[in-house]
Design a protein around this nucleic acid. Structure first.
Length: 903
DNA sequence: GTTGCGCCC
DNA sequence: GTAGTGGGCGCAACC
């Protein structure tokens, strides 16, 4: 019969390992009350990843009881050279003990003894009682306890892996010695970390050799006279007392007066309810999510005794969901929803412009939740009336996607009160998961699982055939949509973001929906013609590159190109990446005199245009209307900007003529209409002039001066009316951009090709000339340090935990972000407000003009000829008055028969 | 899935 | 002294 198992864990050793394994992260793991949790996280991973799978019959975690033990009584300096344990770790010890107990493991400490001795004693006792004993520690000295039924596991890589040591392993490591002889080796060798001396001048090699020869320290000194008279003998004779004392200190006790019995150590496994509360206290969201996905759910929460509000876990009453599976024929039995409902629609494609509903849920706690796979039910007149009834408040996740889907079926979603995705993003821009389950978990609601855990991912992704599984998941989503808004709304209120949400972001989502639905027409014939031309050019370039290289290779492979240039052709590598030679533009541009390089640069440029813009765009043109329908992501960019995907219409080439030609393919969708673009001039610098309050920069904008020329005059000390040569203006422009991004002398030097010293002087002069900007940038960084976040003009908030990072780079990055985010984010606020006003004005004026695209500081429209004049006056007026700043906003418009011409 | 590169504002 | 301007998306190659 198999022997029962006993697991003995060295708590202190593992806690130290856990702490130092994640020392870089120490400031990233702090709970809402300021408690550091890095060691707790790593220790918990150890308990989950190693202890739980091991599933011992009995288990114990032993702790050191305090600083003084019987060993310090024998040697004052024992462990005396250790640095004081950081407070970031000591504060975690009480929680470590609690965590161990919650995992169902006996936790024990004994005054005057170290954890080692508790373990040594228990190991001996357990072995005698017939257990297979396993000891886990980071301390190699414990190897002395290895025996026939005792293994010692030493932690590796922090505490995430262990190395198993049995008798054979010890024999291998100690050249055939037994575990019991390790203390004799340590006695001779000493230990610097525990600070006991051993014999001066004897290291591990000699120690092992001597013990192997004489069996023990005692044996060695019994035969000391037989040793050759030399330095070594002298050392040994002089060090005898130290050797015996050190041996005594190294010896782990097996007779500590422990007060438990083996019976007490029965391993009971985790107390999940207790752990949930514990994890909530520690803000262990991942652990909570994991428990939720394993089916462990939170019980009733404790009364809110400390009065803290806002971020408390939800009361996830686990009463069963009142699910009402329905088909079209049951439509007469629809509940009579009166005030508010959750709506969620599952699609068969992540592209909501094409996806078809494969399931949906609507309902509330009172009337129950209607769930169905029946598209005809979703489109039926009674359901349509509910969805279009603006008096029935809807709670949704990603209003824009639902609006777009329903619009395709002729249903105009109305009454959307709350979009949980938007709310969560505004509260914390990091909580922007495009999965409701994940997002709910980020907001401390754990009853709804992620789509990935229910549907699978990649090739295995599938909507469950089992109605119970699928409908229950939908029901949980709908319930989460009912539960989450109250909490999120109060958090928005706390952050003064209610306006931002209700009057900007939520209405904007429907404007964006209109823009996406409209789409923009792309002339595929034009693209195909360009494609053919590009293919020919690329083929020619290819041939000449092969000729110069002497053979064919993949020019698009940075790896192969690196070999050709820097090995075969023998040019000097200028820069390296972590995987090899860098072949980026700035490297190649420094090699202009090499004939092959010009061709390679040209090849790169053209193949980028062909692959990304010609072929890429052709792939996403809808066959039904010859248009592309982008997806604006409203909840991704950390600054509040939009992003655009499938296709990305915010990075269509503009800089080079060849690239810009792509814009010729973007045309109006109606005959005789025009494309009009309308863009803000210097919006970010104007925002900077406003929020910094710098009088000089404000004066330049108020006088409608060329800001880069003004800056050039200032930083190069020129007269007010001096001619500005283009090179000076270029440098000044680079400085202005650099300031917006939080530049350094190094970065600027690189950018404008001056020495670092000159760059530093330029920056110093800049700050002297625009003192308000210097003042503001210092202030905003200070604000971020004090509050942990920065804000835009519209109270959009970005948290910057890294502002306190110990690592210089990480912290510097956060400081630049602290400067850039209010600037970039406020510019985003402004154009969003403008878009709302524009859409409203077009509607109020009964115009046909349609807003199609937003590219951060510009809006693109398609306009019938008879509205052109009106558009050119109306749009700039709306845009430049979107927000009242201390400097004017400037907007210019352009028209043409394509996006290319509208410049 | 990650890396290198390159496109946009 | 550190590294060395912010925010995005997508392609091809490579692992």
């Amino acid at each position: 019969m198999a022997r029962p198992t006993l697991l003995l864990i060295d708590g202190n050793s593992l806690a130290f390992r856990a702490f130092y394994a994640m020392i870089n992260q120490v400031d990233r793991f702090v709970n809402s009350e300021g408690l550091h949790t890095n060691a707790l996280v790593a220790f918990n991973n150890f308990l989950d990843g190693i202890v739980e799978p091991f599933n011992p019959d009995s288990a114990l975690v032993a702790w050191d009881a305090g600083k003084t033990t019987f060993r310090t009584g024998k040697l004052d300096s024992y462990k005396g050279n250790r640095d004081k344990t950081p407070t970031e770790l000591t504060e975690q010890f009480p929680y470590l003990r609690e965590m161990v107990t919650l995992h169902g493991i006996y936790s024990y400490e004994l005054p005057n003894y170290e954890a080692d001795d508790i373990i040594g004693t228990t190991a001996k006792e357990g072995q005698a009682a017939g257990y297979d004993v396993t000891i886990v520690t980071g301390d190699r000295d414990m190897l002395q306890l290895v025996d026939e039924h005792v293994e010692v596991w030493i932690t590796k890589k922090g505490v995430s892996e262990v190395e198993h040591n049995d008798l054979a392993m010890v024999a291998e490591k100690y050249d055939g010695l037994t575990p019991a002889q390790i203390v004799d080796v340590k006695g001779l060798q000493g230990d610097t970390s525990d600070n006991y001396p051993g014999v001066a001048g004897i290291g591990p090699k000699t120690a092992i050799k001597l013990i192997k020869e004489y069996g023990s320290i005692q044996g060695l000194y019994d035969h000391i006279d037989e040793l050759k008279a030399n330095k070594q003998k002298e050392k040994l004779v002089n060090g005898k007392e130290d050797a015996l004392m050190s041996r005594d200190l190294a010896r782990i006790r097996t007779d500590a007066p422990v007060t438990f019995t083996l019976e007490d150590l029965k391993y009971t496994g985790p107390d999940y309810q207790g752990l949930i509360k514990f994890y909530q206290k520690l803000d262990f969201r991942q652990q909570l999510a994991k428990l939720a996905n394993q089916g462990h759910v939170a019980g009733q929460p404790e009364p809110d005794v400390d009065g803290a509000s806002g971020n408390q876990p939800q009361a996830n009453a686990q009463k069963p969901i009142n699910l009402k599976p329905m088909l079209l024929e049951d439509v007469a039995n629809l509940p009579n929803f009166e005030d508010e409902i959750s709506v969620y629609i599952e699609l068969d494609d992540k592209d909501y412009h094409l996806g078809v509903p494969v399931g949906f849920v609507l309902g509330n706690e009172t009337d129950g939740y209607v769930v169905s796979r029946d598209l005809d039910l979703l489109l039926s007149e009674p359901v349509k009336q509910i969805l279009e009834n603006s008096d029935i408040a809807k709670h949704v996740f990603d209003a824009k996607s639902i609006f777009v889907v329903l619009e395709r079926y002729g249903i105009a979603l109305a009454g959307v009160n709350d979009d949980v995705l938007l709310m969560s993003y505004l509260v914390d821009t990091n909580d922007n998961s495009n999965d409701l389950g994940a997002l709910a978990q980020q907001n401390d609601y754990f009853d709804v699982q992620t789509d990935e855990s229910v549907y699978g991912k990649g090739a295995k992704y599938a909507i469950p055939e089992d109605d119970d599984v699928f409908f229950n998941h939908l029901g949980q989503k709908a319930r989460a949509l009912n539960m989450l808004p109250a909490q999120l709304l109060s958090q928005l209120e706390e952050r003064e973001q209610t306006d931002l949400y209700k009057t900007m972001e939520l209405p904007l989502s429907f404007v964006l929906a209109d823009m996406e639905i409209n789409g923009i027409k792309v002339d595929s014939q034009q693209l195909l013609a360009m494609g053919t031309e590009l293919t020919n050019c690329l083929h020619e370039l290819e041939q000449s590159i092969y000729a110069e290289a002497g053979h064919e290779f993949n020019i698009q492979s940075p790896k192969q190109l690196g070999v050709v240039l820097f090995e075969e052709m023998g040019y000097k590598p200028i820069k390296k990446t972590k995987t090899g030679y860098s072949t980026s533009v700035d490297v190649l541009e420094q090699m202009q005199d090499v004939p092959i390089v010009a061709d390679i640069l040209e090849y790169r440029k053209l193949s980028k245009i062909k692959a990304t813009y010609v072929d890429g765009l052709l792939r996403v043109i809808h066959g039904t209307d010859s248009k592309v329908h982008t997806h604006y992501i409203q909840t991704l960019a950390q600054t509040g900007r939009l992003s655009s995907t499938d296709p990305n219409l915010q990075n269509i080439p503009a800089r080079t003529e060849e690239g810009r030609s792509i814009r010729k393919a973007f045309v109006p969708s109606e005959p005789d209409w025009y494309i009009v673009s309308s863009d803000y001039s210097q919006i970010e610098l104007r925002v900077l002039a406003h929020i910094s309050g710098d009088k000089n920069m404000q004066a330049a904008f108020n006088a409608d001066e060329d800001i880069h020329a003004d800056t050039a005059r200032r930083i190069f000390h020129l007269d007010d009316d001096a001619e500005i040569d283009p090179n000076m203006r270029r440098k000044a422009k680079a400085v202005n951009f650099g300031i917006v991004y939080g530049i350094s002398d190094f970065g600027l030097a690189n950018n404008i090709g001056v020495s670092r010293k000159e760059a530093k002087e330029i920056i110093d002069t800049y700050f002297q000339e625009y003192p308000g900007i210097k003042q503001w940038s210092d202030n905003i960084i200070e604000f971020a340090r004090e509050h942990g976040y920065v804000e835009t003009l519209a109270h959009r908030r970005r948290y910057l935990p890294d502002i306190h990072a110990k690592n210089f780079n990480v912290r510097s990055f956060a400081e630049r972000t602290a400067m850039n985010t209010p600037i970039q984010g406020s510019a985003a606020d402004i154009i969003k407000i403008a878009m709302l006003h524009v859409q409203q004005a077009l509607k109020d004026a009964g115009m046909q003009t349609r807003m199609l695209l937003q590219v951060h500081d510009e809006l693109i429209f398609e306009v019938p000829e008879n509205e052109l004049e009106q558009v050119h006056t109306m749009i700039p007026k709306i845009m430049d008055s979107a927000m009242q700043l201390d400097v004017p906003l400037k907007v210019s418009t352009h028209e043409g028969k394509s996006w290319y011409e509208a410049k």
